[in-house]
Design a protein around this nucleic acid. Structure first.
Length: 373
RNA sequence: GCUGGAAUCGUCUAGUGGCAAUGACAAGAGACUGUAAAUCUCUCGCCUUCGGGCUUCGUAGGUUCGAGUCCUACUUCCAGCA
């Protein structure tokens, strides 16, 4: 069982430590999205230096290329990628359900590779097997994510997610026993709560997931800060306090991190910060700016004078603007370092503020400045 | 000097009688939340009450209902020959 210590609680929010075989994660924490076993534009060294405690890779992408067997052959994703800290894998459910022409059955999902059109099928069992082969510390259950506002659609997806969760758990336990027999490090399973924006479905899903007794929980299908507080309140009031909760995919907007932490989420992952960075949209305490805008051409001040990242300590907005305009790779590197540092630091500060009882002040001050409301 | 050829939005370019004029780049702005994303979208002559109006394709004339497109002269550039 994954060890998780809750050090302090404030309402639903908590400060804790997740102990994984590859190290501890002090929570709340932002987990960098490393879809193809790399954080785009960044090296693992840069990720370590900007303070990232953990990263999250994606089973769908790694199944297509290079394949779980190759990663196993490399000695697991830690050796393969040189990320020797805690690591998550997402199940691939999210990606598969965003592809065109997927065939969903009770057994699993048939889809075509977006790369070469090759036919694939992923089932709860095959996702578990792939994740064990990849070898991250924490695995997500293979879930059905419905992108719909319709209650019936959400119910069907949730019921399927639950049925698949039972199978994920059985397969996971089997693989876990085999690993123990071979003296391999333990890997852990998070159940994924679905139910869309419907509180009764969310409650039902949280209850179901809790009863399965996984190592922790992913909260899926959350797309906007809208209604997020209510959804999280419902779910996290039901989920057991002694297990970690990961809010899947949220964190592009800093407010998501505050609301997520306030309502009891321990970790977050999001592609937003690095994608924004590659497209020139950069976080500052006063809101996001587009560094490509002409007004930064002659701005010889740091991107964020309060930031301690390599980008802000050494370069100016004018230089970043120039690098983006001439489309240099370094533009994306520096921007990614900054944006990733910005969200990691924001969540670190959320943790500190929860520790010393100043969360409300920090939240109010941050949001007021960032969103100018 | 002679003989050919060419001049179209910031740049390169499409266009051979119905055209405010093609495409690319540049420029300006926007989007992005478990990454098919170093991607995508919009604007890009001037004005507009968004109906439209006005001025444009080296310059000046001409032919034509209508000219970036045809004719004449001029200007500039390129190539070949002297």
């Amino acid at each position: 069982m994954l060890k998780f210590d809750v050090m302090k609680k404030q309402g639903l929010a908590r400060v804790g430590v997740i102990h994984t075989p590859h190290g501890d994660i002090k929570t709340p924490a932002f987990v960098g999205a490393a879809t193809r076993a790399t954080v785009k534009a960044l090296t693992m060294k840069e990720m370590r230096e900007l303070g990232s405690q953990a990263i999250l890779a994606n089973t769908y992408h790694l199944v297509l290329r290079p394949g779980p067997e190759l990663i196993k052959e490399a000695g697991g994703v830690a050796n393969f990628s040189s990320w020797h800290g805690p690591m998550f894998t997402d199940s691939g459910g999210f990606q598969i359900f965003s592809l065109p022409n997927v065939k969903i059955s009770e057994n699993g999902v048939k889809f075509k590779s977006h790369i070469d059109g090759a036919n694939f099928e992923m089932t709860p069992e095959s996702s578990m097997q792939a994740q064990w082969a990849i070898g991250a510390d924490i695995h997500m259950a293979f879930d059905h994510l419905a992108k719909s506002e319709n209650y019936e659609d959400m119910k069907i997806a949730m019921d399927r997610t639950h049925a698949w969760l039972e199978r994920c758990k059985i397969e996971h336990d089997k693989l876990s026993k085999e690993a123990a027999k071979n003296n391999k490090p333990e890997q852990y399973l998070y159940a994924v709560v679905q139910g869309g924006t419907f509180n009764d479905l969310r409650a039902e899903s949280a209850k179901f997931c809790a009863e399965i007794e996984p190592d922790g929980f992913g909260i899926g299908g959350v797309f906007t800060a809208d209604k997020m507080d209510e959804m999280l309140k419902t779910v996290n009031s039901i989920l057991p306090e002694n297990k970690p909760r990961h809010l899947l995919g949220m964190g592009e907007e800093p407010i998501d991190l505050f609301v997520g932490a306030e309502y009891g989420c321990d970790t977050f992952d999001c592609v937003g910060p690095t994608r924004m960075a590659r497209n020139g949209s950069l976080y500052t305490p006063n809101g996001r700016i587009n560094i490509k805008n002409a007004k930064y051409k002659h701005d010889f001040t740091p991107l964020d004078p309060e930031c301690d990242c390599e980008c802000c300590k050494n370069y100016t907005r004018a230089y970043l603007h120039h690098l983006f305009k001439v489309d240099e790779i370094t533009a994306k590197v520096l921007a990614s370092i900054h944006n990733e540092r910005f969200v990691v630091k924001t969540v670190d500060k959320i943790r500190e503020s929860l520790e010393n009882g100043t969360f409300e002040e920090y939240k109010t001050e941050f949001l007021k400045r960032y969103y100018k409301t």
